[in-house]
Amino acid sequence: MRRWGLGRRITGHRRLGEALRGHVPERRLFSMADAVPGKKYRVLRIHGGYRLNSRLCAMGFVPGEVFYVTGASRGGPRCVIIKGTKFAIGSGMAERIQVEEI
């Protein structure tokens, strides 16, 4: 895995991973990276491999979970509060978490 978060969008690497698992997003999805402070969001789906999915789930990033953003720097990590705990999450990682505004 390359280091995430250099501000780039979907990479070839990521596409490959998803193609193998049978779901290639057609267009850029609304992700945690697009979420802004002051609004509420819900996790829809994590676009990652087994390891990443398991890890994020263990940290509380599961489909259906509500979260909000408290701070972010452009291209750098952002702060989200999910299941009562605050996390810093790199933008590359955040892009893999598909979310919706509620």
């Binding site: 895995m1 390359r2 890890r55 702060c79 705990t85 605050k86 996390f87 790199g90 590359g92 990682m93």
Partner: peptide
Amino acid sequence: RATRFRGESEPFVMELP
């Protein structure tokens, strides 16, 4: 990073306790 320690870098998710 580009040679001997390529890959396996931790994606950045960290609890802010």
